[in-house]
Design a protein around this nucleic acid. Structure first.
Lengths: 207, 207
DNA sequence: CCTCTAGGATAGGAGCACTATCCAGTGGTG
DNA sequence: CACCACTGGATAGTGCTCCTATCCTAGAGG
């Protein structure tokens, strides 16, 4: 199919498709002649992936580009998943500011929960977050951290057992990124509801 | 003090202060003469609040404006807190798209957790999120939701007991917004770490 | 032949959060 | 009393991101 049909099938305007081509989010079509190109089903699914990452997950063009380049470069799937996690959860923003600092509290959590004690982006992000909260004067007690980590441990256990990784790399990014984002948002929303519920209960008791 | 001193004490450029004045995020100073105005300590703390909401929480000007107008309009504290929650957690985005739809799953959570069964923004946001995930084909099993809700229930219980509300309204917004945001981010980061830890463990076992 | 389309280049535009400039009117300082 | 820094008010410009539109020529298909 050619550009116009690709546009019609995905609902993305030709101008935007051209833009994605320029930014190399979308690989160039097979060039038939100087002025004609042929696009495949792969282009359709790639465009759908781009749309999902933009509209649902809310990544920007640069972030999408870096993930897709990794995928196209044949990076190991575990590296890819790590990159997806970094990008989707915005771990970069927090963790790159400081170096590889460790916080006692962060280490305690890992020991307490019996999580493997290996350095990781998530680990750094946690430490950075704890440092940030410290610096802003928001208290994080050991007790609170214990409750939080126990809760997320339970969540992660359920979550991971409910997941199967697809073969196709684009598909892998799609499910991983969309899943991570949506589950994160779900937890945030549940947390808000739980918080409101507890507040109401306490308010009723006080009144 | 006058504008320049206000700028120096808060680290916000005079141009930005003027901008905030124009957008009425910052109340006008007491006008001494046609060309001179006097700012108070309240302006300093208000500016710090604006900075925190912008830089830390990541709200935009319109959102900050709406919260501050509520505060200045003497809205009830509970309404204010609800608005803060809506804004900080982005509950508006999701929940306004659909109406007041209820999902069986959302209701089940509330009953199961014995949370007060009253309509709320958080409730709507949860239902909307569940509907969204449904529509995107991301499965949310009752089992998963149960685990999630149990976990956040525990978190909320700890969280709320560790909080005391300040008297000053600006201060209330500051602690509520910053606290909500940072705790939400903390949970997300912990979740990422827990997820990674479980993945590593499963990977090791498989290998 | 005529119309349509591709690709390439470049420019335009919208939204956001500032930032800069210009203005004329003062306050206080020397 | 002259002068300069500073004021509020107005308006325009900047940098960023993500597109969208226009213009061009070469070539395909009816």
């Amino acid at each position: 199919m050619q550009l116009k049909e690709l546009s019609e099938r995905t609902g993305v305007s030709p101008a935007s498709i051209k833009f994605y081509l320029r930014e190399s989010l979308l690989p160039a079509g097979r060039s038939i002649h100087a002025t004609r190109a042929e696009y495949s089903e792969h282009h359709v699914s790639r465009l759908e992936l781009i749309q999902a990452l933009r509209r649902v997950v809310g990544l920007n063009i640069a972030e999408i580009g870096s993930l897709l380049r990794m995928a196209d470069g044949g990076a190991p799937r575990l590296d890819l998943l790590a990159a997806v996690q970094r990008t989707v959860l915005g771990l970069d923003d927090v963790s790159t500011e400081h170096g590889d600092l460790r916080t006692p509290a962060g280490d305690a959590v890992v020991r307490f929960r019996n999580w493997p004690d290996v350095p990781s982006d998530a680990r750094n992000a946690l430490n950075a977050q704890l440092a940030l909260m410290e610096s802003l004067g928001v208290p994080v007690t050991a007790e609170l951290l214990d409750a939080y980590s126990q809760a997320v441990d339970a969540i992660a256990a359920v979550n991971i057992s409910a997941t199967t990784a697809p073969e196709d790399v684009d598909q892998l990014i799609m499910t991983a990124a969309v899943g991570m984002h949506l589950h994160g948002q779900l937890v945030l929303k549940l947390l808000a509801l739980a918080h409101a519920s507890h507040a109401i209960r306490r308010y009723d008791k006080d009144a």
